[in-house]
């Protein structure tokens, strides 16, 4: 069984803080991590490797620094790593990104492609299903659990108020939720191998068969018209009183606002 896991290196947005004066993001010193949903997808693949001896390849599209994320995946136990990187791929929206990744995947053999549901920097949840569409694969999104049954997968697919148990024949694509599992740590031996024994294969524009009009900024139907920092509403009143007076204070305010 061959599995490809798509991962994205993202800034740890949980550690992004606001500058109290300007209201802008302080990005300096914010560490880059493997996107959490993707990491859960990787862990799911590694468990299938433990159980069935699956071969696990990780692939990432991004700047050269994404090498670090791929090395981490190797150190966790992935067998191969591929970095898709080229200025020609830059400025891509989700459609152009998915087109590029799908084109890179076409040169690989796989039974299963796993992506995270969404990345914490963009939160779009689009690239997984779009890759599946480009490759003509069935996809099951929001996977909370999965197991192999013959040539099929049984996936627990999450919805807001329910779940579906879905049987899907491989090859297929699954988008993983963080709830899927708790990813393992890198091992010291794994880290050593990831940097000394294993390689990250690099694919550039010339290595990927794809039309120029479908990649990068040019291949992106959407454009950023403008970005702006959300203006925080005017700060309210903050008081420090003893518990009794605090409670009384809130009652007064609720009465002023006609809530009670």
């Amino acid at each position: 069984m061959k599995i490809v896991v798509c991962i994205k290196q993202v800034p740890n947005t949980n550690e992004v803080k606001l500058d109290p004066v300007t209201g802008t993001l302080i990005r300096d010193g914010v560490p880059s991590i493997i996107n959490p949903d993707d990491k859960a997808g990787l862990e799911a693949a590694l468990r299938l490797k433990d159980e069935y001896g699956a071969h696990v390849t990780v692939i990432s599209m991004g700047p050269p620094q994404a090498d670090t994320a791929l090395r981490e995946a190797l150190a966790m136990g992935a067998d191969e790593a591929i970095l898709v990187t080229d200025r020609a791929f830059g400025g891509a929206d989700t459609l152009a990104t998915s087109t590029t990744i799908a084109a890179a995947l076409k040169s690989l053999e796989f039974d299963l492609v796993i992506t995270g549901r969404q990345a914490i920097d963009g939160d779009t949840a689009q690239v997984g299903p779009q890759i599946a569409e480009h490759l003509g694969l069935p996809n099951v999104s929001y996977a909370e659990d999965l197991k192999v049954e013959g040539d099929s997968l049984i996936v627990k697919r999450q919805y807001e108020d329910r779940y579906h148990m879905i049987k899907v024949k491989m090859p297929c694509l699954i988008t993983a939720l963080s709830e899927l599992n708790k990813p393992r740590y890198m091992t010291p031996g794994g880290i050593f191998d990831a940097y000394r024994e294993k390689e990250v294969k690099v694919l550039t524009r010339a290595d990927v068969t794809v039309d120029d009009s479908t990649i990068g900024l040019k291949g992106s139907p959407t454009r950023v018209f403008q970005t702006f920092t959300k203006s925080l509403k005017a700060a309210g009143t903050v008081v420090q009183l003893d518990p009794e007076d605090s409670a009384e204070y809130m009652i007064e305010k609720l009465k002023e606002k006609f809530i009670i």
């Binding site: 947005t13 949980n14 993001l25 920097d121 454009r223 950023v224 403008q226 970005t227 702006f228 959300k230």
Partner: peptide
Amino acid sequence: PAFGGNIMATIVC
């Protein structure tokens, strides 16, 4: 919203 909610981006197609 992007980037966890602080930056807002206006997108056109």
